[in-house]
Design a protein around this nucleic acid. Sequence first.
DNA 1: GGTGTACTCATTTTT
DNA 2: TGAGTACACC
Length: 764
Amino acid sequence: MDLNESQRQAVTHVDGPLLVLAGAGSGKTRVITRRVAYLAEQGISPHHILAITFTNKAAGEMRDRVAELACPPGATICTFHSLCARLLRDYADLAGLSPNYSIYDRDDQLKVAKRAIEEANIAGSNFTPARVHGQISNLKNELKVPADVLDDGDRYIRNVAKVYGRYEKILAANNALDFDDLLMKMSFLMRQQPDVRDALGRRFQYVLIDEYQDTNHAQYILAHGIALDHENICATGDPDQSIYAWRGADINNILDFEKDYPDATVVRLEENYRSVQPILTAASTLIAHNRMRKSKNLFTRKEGGEAVGVLICDDEHAEAREIANRIDAYRNDGGAYGDVAVFYRVNSLSRVLEEALMKKGVPYRIARGTEFYNRKEIKDMLAYCKLLVNPADDVSCLRIINTPSRGIGQTSQDRLASYAAPAGLCILDATAHAEAAGVGGASLKKVNAFAAMMHELAADIDRADASVSKTLEDIFRRTGLEESLSGSDEDARQARANIEELISTAAEFDEQDHEDSEVGPLAAYLHQVALVSDVDRLEGATGAVTFMTLHAAKGLEFPVVFMVGCEEGLLPFQRGPSFPGMDEDIEKTEEERRLAFVGMTRSQTRLAMSCAKSRMVRGRRTPQAKSRFLDELGAETVRVEDLTTSMAELDRSGGFRNRMKRARGGRRRGGFYDEASQREIIEAMDDRLFEDGHRDDVDEPVPPEYAYLKPGCMVRHATFGTGKVVKLSQPWPKTRATVLFHEFGQKKLVLAHTSLDVLESENW
DNA sequence: GGTGTACTCATTTTT
DNA sequence: TGAGTACACC
């Protein structure tokens, strides 16, 4: 067997609780997949095996790898959320739900939170939907209902409890669940219905949970509930990689596993197959500074390897330039761009890096979860589906009642809503009583037409032969979405392509068999889609440098890694001011240290960590101190390179910036061009500034970079990346431009909000 | 529905 | 600084 001794031990352990403490890069995934196959070889029906992961991506990979091991199919390999979604459909009656419930995504959840705040009549900057929703989410993860915190000592929490109560009422009225509900309702169901728990225990006789260090309380209860009788529970994870406490993950779940199961077998996977010695030593030395952990002795047999670089730079621009140069050099030495990753603590650090790489012509990609399913046209389509499956879903109803616009304006919507509420109707029902609701004139006809259309669509779905893809096609055509997107502009083209893609994923879904008899295929499809984000898309070698946050890096590996912004305040992250001697939250700092550890242990052969002595933070140049973590790496395996020059500060704070600023009437941004290209721009444009760039209406020169913004220019936007200007909505001076971005289709950008950098223009 | 402007707020985000 | 948003106005 191609396993080391401890891996073998973990794989071949069959009955009873097992804790696998899997160090970074120790072959954990291999152990889990082999273990599933091994259990099957021992004559255990795969039907009785449940493997739970945190992401669909991980679940998919595990399924593939188990299949490769010639394991008979039938094991349940899925995420906590998808497991619960399925069980709640099966047990809908017992859970007091209707199985066609909608699953609300983050946007929908925030809409509900917003309404709940309004209804609870609580205002204040502490009560933003996002914030309150976060609190509610945490409470749900702890399996707390509003009543549990209604008498809390903290007034803020008491108010949150009020909103939480309203929030739950709204969800219930819409027959909808949020992500946390899936876990919470299922936990409650198991608690209240011993029969359900027994049945699940009998069905899933072997339970495996991956990334156990990131489980929250609800997930803990679920896993242990299922395993209550047989105790065949195998938890794998690494406490040193627990980085989601802020989202409710409880590191004590893994630290206390042996208390929960005193008989547990504990296996430590300590041989690292990923990193060279200096990287592993530095990372281990760093993490040894944490007190809340199980000590581990990671080792590697990989010989050699360079010392970990610690780069000290003048500022973020110097840092970015240095990294760009090194990536360039690596490539010239025969390396591939795709080998390289750059990690940062916060997304905002990516900008300067992007600029530097772009200037060097180094291709890069940013790993963000900007999902396919977040696009407007996709969400519109799915909202129609949700509404058809679940007419009570007012959030979806309001989303599409006037999309595409069909003359049902805010007023009519309000009338329908206020008619529906006291009558206990949903809004879709209310459209059948539009006249009674006070909708009159032209709007009345429009509402009636909408009601009739939805009625017809619903009737068609009920026909037995309706496949999901066919339903989607019908919706696209008959709701007028197709017509509204029939234009020839890039926006519409992209939207149509996206919808085609959606329909083909639905066709794939149609191909699979689903035993789900509780609900129709459309409902099952919606539940699946709601729980899929496409981080899966970040795959394969692309020949580009990869940028991502430290959080996003978990589970990945790269030959070459740069970690930027290793400065106090950024890593460890701290909001607000701090000073020596100030009380610190040790647990938070330890999580930050784990985050640094995760980042470092992603790298296979080369690792450089950089810091800058000064950095722009929220529009202010701020002196930065290097991260304490850099001092905790141990001196032997680290090579410090001081790249600071006394000249640098002078260059940038010098007269040129001010000149730019004055030329721009004291507004707009700066800091993108290096001095040489800035001079070039100014010189090229000095005599044309008046002609092209002077605003007649305002006695103020136009910012030079915008004066030359024309169709064909390459531009860069902080959120969307680089793109090409398709058109300006009117000739300059203007405030809006349409830009074609490779990944995001066409976006209208408001230049008055200073969101663009012009990269190159034929006019220069 | 498009446009301009004034305001406020600023981690990480597997589902 | 800069981006999203709320709102007023056409």
